[in-house]
């Protein structure tokens, strides 16, 4: 990891916009989830303020992906409440639609639509969900594609792009819906090492602009540089959370120590 850590540390990070406000973006209280009889998430309590950048880490199977998938209702939770931007996720389908259109999500395997061009990938949801006129949607899409530095690929198909480029397109696709919160589900895990940096750069850029972000990632360099809070999860529960500096330098729980020693050890 050291390589990427240095590459991020080299970068001048502009913290002027990274302000955490008092406004609550996401509030999760006593949330529980089961797969059949398997208790995946246990008594999760988490409040995310607007402008916060949270990194969630933990061993595989600890429930971290499930947690953020619950936030935009890709998974259903069975107990407790999740409130996103004042909308409580319930069985009301309208609320689910509302939350989904306000929360952007980036997946480990990009999940771009292979039958559509990059531009069409980005304009699809604005046109069909937000009912934005096509030209306006395309302008927005080009704006964000420029932001992730691949406007010249707009007319290509996802299959013609490298992994890193695809993931940046996936970020741009989410941004086109003008979300107020972005969720990242291990966005760099499926990438070759040399492509991780370009995706992390894009994410840092987002953070600099004050986006509320929750990232499931093992990029500890990114966590140290950008996050204002790191959460460690194991066995479906939040074990420890703290500011990055304190988290990395002085972990309290034994599990956290073990985990950190395993991933930072070499």
């Amino acid at each position: 990891m050291s390589e990427f850590q240095t590459s991020i540390e080299d970068r001048q990070i502009d913290r002027s916009q990274m302000k955490v406000s008092d406004e609550i973006a996401i509030e999760i209280t006593d949330m529980n989830k089961w797969y059949g009889t398997f208790h995946v998430l246990r008594d999760i309590n988490l409040t995310v303020n607007r402008g916060e950048r949270i990194v969630v880490c933990g061993p595989s199977g600890s429930g971290k992906s499930t947690l953020i998938r619950c936030i935009n209702a890709l998974e259903e939770h069975q107990k407790g409440t999740i409130t996103v931007d004042g909308t409580t996720l319930s069985t009301d389908l309208k609320n689910i639609d509302k939350v989904r259109s306000e929360v952007g999500m980036v997946f480990q395997h990009f999940n771009l639509f292979p039958h559509l061009t990059i531009l069409e990938n980005c304009t699809l949801a604005p046109i069909w969900v937000r009912q934005v006129p096509k030209r306006e949607a395309e302008e927005t899409a080009m704006y964000f594609l420029e932001k992730v530095k691949i406007p010249e690929q707009a007319l290509k198909y996802p299959g013609q792009l490298s992994g890193g480029q695809q993931q940046r397109v996936a970020i741009a696709r989410s941004l086109c819906m003008r979300p107020r919160i972005m969720l990242f589900d291990e966005p760099t895990s499926a990438l070759d090492p040399e492509m991780i940096k370009e995706v992390l750069d894009t994410m840092i850029q987002l953070a600099e602009e004050g986006m509320t972000m929750i990232c499931v990632t093992h990029e500890m360099g990114f966590a140290q540089a950008v996050a204002n809070r790191v959460i460690f999860m194991d066995q479906g529960q939040i074990i420890e959370q703290n500011e990055p500096k304190a988290f990395f330098n002085n972990p309290q729980n034994d599990r956290t120590k073990l985990f950190l020693s395993q991933i930072l050890g070499h």
Binding site: L74, N111, F113, L124
Partner: peptide, 18 residues
């Protein structure tokens, strides 16, 4: 079709028929 395609469509807020 990979499951990710359904999930990506859901996460963008597209309804079932769309």
């Amino acid at each position: 079709l990979p499951k990710g395609q359904y999930e990506a469509a859901d996460s963008l807020g597209l309804d079932y028929w769309k």
